[in-house]
């Protein structure tokens, strides 16, 4: 296995559902990020094998969301390399707006679809149009084919009957399920989840997690920033605990969540055990 810097993720190992011999499909290598003089990410390296689910946990402000946003260049990293499905983009903050760089990033984003905390559905478009806008106009899929794909994923998230609804008429849980379907309709190589249940009413969290668990068990590749420890325990191949811009601890959920070795991980998890084992950290 060769990598750009000779860097590798020491915790990476093929997951339970990874096809034999497949190389990592996502590599975040030595990601550094400054906001002004604030050093938010201090060299994060993370590799994901196909069909793995990886959860990133940590306190707010620890850099976990920033790392995820660096993975598809919603934030331009200050340094580092992102590789997804053989598309490799090196951080280039000085030429972030160059045509060539932006095109590379676009290619990367088509392969790594993000699900946001705030859903970010397009309120002026019906559900079906939210789903097919990018496949048709970005990927160039024919409209009929995009609609067929979109309807398949609406079925998967259980919202086929909301096909022609406007987002404004949906509950938060339904919106997030539509957002997941929108990401899936792009048929990406990896799904990025940025605290997908944090903005939800507690009674609506379950329906979203159920969809995510189903995806994980079906072999989707997922990188999930979350406070849902139960979900991490149930669905993750590996859990990464991030503290002050560095991975403090990583490994299988049984190890990181139930027998943490790092003192900081223990302290972080103590907040959840009081509430009878991890539900919502919000």
């Amino acid at each position: 296995m060769t990598t750009t810097h000779g860097t590798t993720d020491p915790f990476a190992a093929p997951g339970a559902l990874t096809p034999t011999g497949a190389p990592p499909i996502v590599r975040l290598l030595d990601i550094e990020k400054y906001f002004g003089s604030h050093h938010v990410l201090q060299g994060c390296t993370l590799e994901v094998y196909p069909s793995e689910t990886i959860c990133i946990i940590g306190r707010s402000g620890s850099g976990k969301s920033t790392l995820l946003r660096c993975a598809n260049f919603l934030e331009e990293p200050t340094a580092g390399v992102v590789e997804i499905d053989n598309i490799s983009v090196r951080a280039d903050p000085l030429h972030a707006r160059s045509r060539q760089h932006r095109e590379q990033i676009r290619q990367l984003r088509m392969r790594a679809q993000m699900v946001f905390q705030e859903f970010n559905l397009f309120p002026h478009l019906r559900v079906i149009d939210n789903l097919i806008e990018a496949p048709v106009r970005v990927k160039g899929v024919s409209r009929d084919k995009a609609i067929a794909t979109a309807e398949r994923y609406l079925d998967k998230v259980g919202l086929r009957e909301k096909r022609d609804a406007f987002p404004g008429s949906l509950s938060g849980g339904q919106k997030q399920r539509v957002a997941i379907a929108r990401a899936l309709t792009m048929e990406p190589k990896v799904l990025l989840f940025d605290e997908p249940t944090s903005a939800l009413d507690p009674t609506l969290v379950g329906e979203v997690l159920a969809v995510m668990e189903e995806l994980a068990h079906e072999g989707a590749t997922m990188l999930v920033v979350t406070h849902e420890m139960a979900f991490a325990r149930e669905a993750a191949d590996r859990v990464y605990f991030i503290e002050e811009g560095r991975f403090a601890e990583a490994g299988p959920p049984q190890q990181v969540l139930d027998a943490p070795r790092d003192e900081r991980t223990r302290r972080f998890l103590a907040r959840f055990t009081g509430a009878g084992g991890a539900t919502s950290g919000a």
């Binding site: 919603l74 290619q107 984003r109 970010n120 397009f122 002026h124 990018a134 970005v138």
Partner: peptide
């Protein structure tokens, strides 16, 4: 128009022009 709309559009791979025309201006 909320920033999240721009982020969602660019995360879907839309160009700035496409985002402006189809996502931002209608709103």
């Amino acid at each position: 128009v909320p920033r999240g709309q721009l982020e969602a559009a660019s995360a879907l791979g839309m160009t700035e022009r496409h985002t402006m025309r189809r996502i931002v201006l209608p709103q």
